[in-house]
Design a protein around this nucleic acid. Sequence first.
DNA 1: TTCTATTTACGTTACGTATCGTAAATAAAT
DNA 2: ATTTATTTACGATACGTAACGTAAATAGAA
Lengths: 199, 199
Amino acid sequence: MSQDLEQRKRGRPPSLAARAKALRAAHDILMNEGFGRLTIEAVAAKSGVSKPTIYRHWSNASELAMAALMIGYDGGETGGGGSLEDQLLAQMRSLVTAFATTRGRQIALTLAASDPESEMTKAFRNRVILSSRERGRELIEGAVNHGSMPAPEDIEVLLDMLYAPVFYRLLLGHLPLSLEFADSVVRAALAIMEVRQKG
Amino acid sequence: MSQDLEQRKRGRPPSLAARAKALRAAHDILMNEGFGRLTIEAVAAKSGVSKPTIYRHWSNASELAMAALMIGYDGGETGGGGSLEDQLLAQMRSLVTAFATTRGRQIALTLAASDPESEMTKAFRNRVILSSRERGRELIEGAVNHGSMPAPEDIEVLLDMLYAPVFYRLLLGHLPLSLEFADSVVRAALAIMEVRQKG
DNA sequence: TTCTATTTACGTTACGTATCGTAAATAAAT
DNA sequence: ATTTATTTACGATACGTAACGTAAATAGAA
């Protein structure tokens, strides 16, 4: 076997097909019936994947729910090319798309509003809020190192200004979380950087 | 409430109907499908009694199987009246009746042949073999105290001669376990007692 | 190269319990 | 005597795992 391919473990490999079936079923239940109806038994029944197999991939229903929620959200990682603005725009749009639906927002709210110490809440915060912010940091630091933009005076402030408005709307729901809104936030944040550079 | 009636516990009483339904279903499964098919899930499905309720009455499938097996066996306790011979005959017939069917014998064999330390085997030994023997002891001692027969020289030997042949045939199956056989054993044992009395 | 042995995953079925809403009982208050 | 409060059992549903037979893979022997 070629040395640049990861050597496959002995024995029957885990089935990506089974995993995908379970995730799709979980996603369907989340979107169509709601968070409360997402149970291991329901996913097994709907997907045809056995409970032992589901438990081989995820520890509990919360983990599965989180993974299912993430199906439509790739963290902007596909936006590898283009300028910093292009990349940030791609990430923001992906983020917004994942939660813009009514049900998506309900689920996110349920997650964020539950016990702060619950696995679900911690998973949401880590997987979505903090990881999005870290991805943004990577993009900005990459652009600075690349010489395509000057180092910001305070990158933490910049990151907060990028992501706070999106999660603010997501969690409060007082105004629509649209792609236009995502674009505006990115452009405004970058404009601040340009002003600072000129001033 | 009358003081000679056991005061009923507070709260919802256990349901004798539920218990009876579960026992009947278990008995049907034992007789029609065999010991291996007797599972808590099968009994719940067949009887309509929930698994939690079944577990309130019996600790596991083995206990339930034993209880179901005993449905047709009342330990000869109904033979309250009559002579010692009448009582022993009634008990022996009841015992034989419980195991005389092909399936009954298969089940008893399965029980007796399994791991000597298993709960099932212990339960069978205690509930059937030893308790039958103890019931016989009670009947004989009752008759002696009653003055209707003299004390046997060795009651343990007498009990063995009464019950060993029945269980011997039950467990080996080399000859039929019939009501006539039960009658013969009782009469032979009593005849020995009479001979000893005269000799 | 083919065959056999071994390892690991999958599905089936069962286990035994947790949680919750409801039912059936008694105890206490009115 | 009636109503309300409290206790305990029931059924529904879900959880998470055990055991087993089979499938899908690699490793080793021939």
